[in-house]
Structure formats: C-alpha cells, structure tokens
C-alpha cells in the first residue's frame, strides 16, 4: 500500500469514527477514486498537462465562476470541492486520462438551474483563460473546448 493510499484509508477510518460517535459533526463524504498521477502517453489528458494542470485550471475556473457577479447564483451553498473533483474526473475520462466519471450526467446536474446562454459562455471564457494561465498549449485547449461545447444542450435552459 502506497503512503497516500494508506493515509487516505486512515482518514476514512477516522471520519467514520466521527460519525459513529454521533456528534453534531456532519457525516463523512463518499470516497472518490483520484485521477492518475501519470497521464497515459499521447492522450489529450497528457497534452493538457495531466492531473496537475487539469486540477489547477479546473480549480481556478470553478473559483471564478462561483464568485463572479454574473455566474455565482448557481453555486450558492454548493460544495465546490465536489464540483471540482467531478469536473476533473469528467475531463479526465473524456480525454483519455483513464478516469471513471462517477457523477451524474450533465442534464441531471443542471436541471432546474435554468442556466442562460450568457452564463454558459462566461464559464467557457473563464475556462479558456484559466487554461492559458496554466500554460496549456493552444491545440489542446481548443480540443477540450470542442468536447465540452457539445454538452451545451444538456446545460442551458433546463
């Protein structure tokens, strides 16, 4: 067992103990399989910069979209770390990184939020900027945006 795995197992045991002691602490969250440390060679995931770069630009994008005046309403009271994790997993699975996306489909995720076209394009803009900030090459940026653009109908006006 590698050290990070061992530590996370230890953390799970500790969190489970907190719940079992029946305190006012919120319950522990379900476990998630982390994305790979080494991206499969030649994959778009690798060209995006692998897990370090993807995690970093997803982090920035979600922080921006959750605090920007025009887009933050959909992220009110939302567990942003969960959104970031699911977005990394989804990008990883769509770009040959080898992750299994365990989140809900995009239609279910966005239903009821009534996302506007303007909000959608603002997030695209923030993602584009964040990728540039983290030195993702232009070709890889465009390939990812193209993949994500196909999801628009499952995001807006639901």
């Amino acid at each position: 067992m590698s050290q990070p795995t061992f530590l996370s197992a230890l953390a799970c045991v500790f969190l489970a103990g907190v719940v079992h002691s029946q305190t006012a602490e919120p319950p522990a969250k379900p476990a998630r399989v982390p994305p790979p440390a080494v991206a499969p060679a030649g994959s778009l995931y690798a060209r995006l910069g692998g897990t370090p770069a993807v995690t970093a630009f997803v982090d920035d994008t979600i922080e921006k979209v959750a605090t920007s005046h025009d887009t933050k309403r959909s992220f009110d009271k939302v567990n942003l770390q969960h959104v970031k994790n699911m977005l990394v997993d989804q990008i990883c699975s769509l770009t040959g990184g080898g992750c299994v996306y365990t989140g809900d489909n995009m239609r279910e995720v966005h239903a009821g939020h009534k996302i506007t076209n303007a909000e959608f394009y603002q997030l695209v803009e923030m993602l584009r900027d964040s990728m540039r900030d983290h030195d993702v090459p232009l070709a890889a940026r465009n390939e990812l945006l193209e993949i994500l653009a196909a999801m628009k109908r499952d995001v807006v006006k639901l």
């Binding site: 029946q22 919120p26 319950p27 969250k29 009271k77 567990n79």
Partner: peptide
C-alpha cells in the same frame, strides 16, 4: 433505533 445524521454530497452545509 438510533441517531442518523444526513448530509448532501452537493451542498456540504446541508445537515
């Protein structure tokens, strides 16, 4: 019987 603590995976302040 017992105490059940509920959470929401999407909205972590919900308890």
């Amino acid at each position: 019987t017992g105490l059940v603590v509920l959470g929401c995976n999407i909205h972590d302040k919900m308890v």
